[in-house]
Amino acid sequence: MVLSVSDLSVARGGIPVLEGVSLRLGPGEALVLRGPNGIGKTTMLRTVAGLQPPLSGAIEAAPESLVYAGHADGIKATLTVEENLSFWAQVFGSKDVSAAVDAFDLDPLRRRPAGALSAGQKRRLGLARLLVTGRTIWVLDEPTVSLDVDAVAMFAGAVRAHLAEGGAALIATHIDLRIPEARIFDLAPYRAAPLGLDDFDGAFL
């Protein structure tokens, strides 16, 4: 078991959105989170990534095993593609960026300033960052935004390769990624019921 979430409740803007979510992720497994807009997919992923505290419940993962990729890619426009990747490689204590460059076909763009990339190319660069981190659990929020069909296939290939090496992925997305290993996890049943107004702090949440 690489990631285990038990009885998790999360809040957005002080208001509970999801409650009682439990899921487990083993090596080589991927989970695709589904649910209508506003159900709390992003909130859930940010909580799992440790960016915000859960209202209740527990998240268990090996230390330093998670990597998070959100809506924004964290790309510095004035640095080249390679410098961007090298920076993150240094942060995560690895060195080699060539595998990441190859997986997302960034070789022709290596020396180009990231500010000159198209939206889809930036996204590819943002996803390539996952590979240089060397982390086992990928927590991805809408990774395919602004990617074309070829690039989505590229991404699916990268995820499958990651899973084949014993990695795991937790992905929130609306489109079909064509990753046969992935299970679908629907969040709709976990929508939080409002707290009673007479609870201790109930009036505030």
Partner: peptide, 12 residues
């Protein structure tokens, strides 16, 4: 703005 802070916060 570019999301680096989120990523740095989840980095080692």
């Amino acid at each position: 703005e570019d999301g680096s802070l989120d990523l740095l916060a989840t980095s080692p």
